[in-house]
Design a protein around this nucleic acid. Structure first.
Lengths: 197, 197
DNA sequence: TAAAAGTCTTAAACTAGTTCATTTTTTTTC
DNA sequence: GAAAAAAAATGAACTAGTTTAAGACTTTTA
């Protein structure tokens, strides 16, 4: 079976943790929805009940909330081969507090809540896939949940550059500040300081 | 089948997400190890390769790292009916950066890495249990990973009291400071301020 | 391709949280 | 139940990061 690029990408991603037969691959792909979103457009907004979990096949997006003062707090940048969405809203069917906005023209594959549930009935192996995917995400979020309180802003910036070299030059300094958790002004100071070192 | 208290607790916990037959329950329990740890004793220390994932049946423990200056950063307090451990070390078999120390005399059920792997072969339903358990943990860690950078220390303290009323009076102010990410001195100030309000 | 909008830089005054030092209170230990 | 150890409170001097404001540079849009 010849797969188109985006389908090959997601099958390769899934195949890191579980083996699928040709029939299962086709079944899985049939449960996905193709989505395109132009630069600056929203994939979802706060107040929405999230209908999909997303896999990015092309582009770059930011996931963020607005605090009481209207300042954005970016929780992740999602690029090719990443999974994103708002799992809390997707699972609980409660309105989301997150915005997801495209930083570049982007293409995604979405799985709806109904198809996500169906997937486990049709191909129980996916319980294992998601068990391992969530386990790996959990390991990185557990680590990250301490960053904000145990590292200085400068240390967090250096960590980000080391961990995400493929992302750092696709985003603005302002958005990076929103991720690191500081003002754009202080971000500017840190970057010029670190570059001088 | 009459279960002893600690086994009943863990079976009830697992049964929130999956249904087990009597035979499966017995099989599962046979894979667990009972562990007791006295107040102030370590369940594990940085440098160890974590042998178990733990379920607490009695007591209270703190999970923490030491930063370069030797200051403790507490990542969780674990009480009855909680799961804890260092998943990164457990999965990758690399040395841990965490300490787990009992705050009260505690009793736990541990599953070894070998039995964890075996469990999925013997009772594949557990892929689903862990998929859902990790999914729920992930939802709360995703939320928490933004707390450090988007809330003030006072707001984090108020959140903690609201979310963990059953824990707040079992731990010292000093340990709470280590969790909130501030000095014990500033914690003291915040608490007296919040109580005055 | 010009104007508009957004991003980046710099600097001075400010605030949340730290550090260090001392005293009081509570808990642990023998 | 006394002595020792640990935790909590308080205060003064300090630092990381914010706020506000203004000008320079880049990107977007018509």
């Amino acid at each position: 079976m010849k797969l188109e690029y985006s389908h090959k990408l997601i099958i390769d991603n899934v195949s890191r943790f579980i083996d699928l037969t040709e029939l299962e691959k086709q079944k899985y792909i049939s449960l996905l929805t193709e989505i395109k979103v132009k630069k600056k457009a929203f994939l979802m907004q706060a107040g929405d009940i999230t209908r999909f979990e997303y896999f990015i096949t092309k582009g770059c997006l930011k996931v963020y909330t607005l605090d009481v003062d209207g300042a954005p707090h970016i929780s992740m940048f999602a690029v090719e081969d990443y999974w994103t969405g708002d799992m809390a809203s997707f699972i609980t069917k409660q309105p989301s507090r997150y915005f997801i906005k495209a930083i570049e023209d982007s293409e995604l594959l979405g799985i709806s809540r109904a198809n996500y549930d169906l997937l486990f009935q049709e191909i129980p192996k996916f319980e294992r896939f998601y068990r391992i995917l969530y386990q790996k995400s959990l390991i990185s979020y557990i680590r990250r949940s301490n960053y904000g309180i145990s590292l200085t802003a400068e240390e967090r910036y250096i960590e980000f550059k080391k961990k995400y070299p493929h992302i750092v030059n696709r985003i603005t300094q302002k958005d990076l500040a929103g991720y690191i958790g500081i003002t754009p002004e202080f971000m500017s100071k840190i970057i010029s300081k670190v570059n001088r070192m």
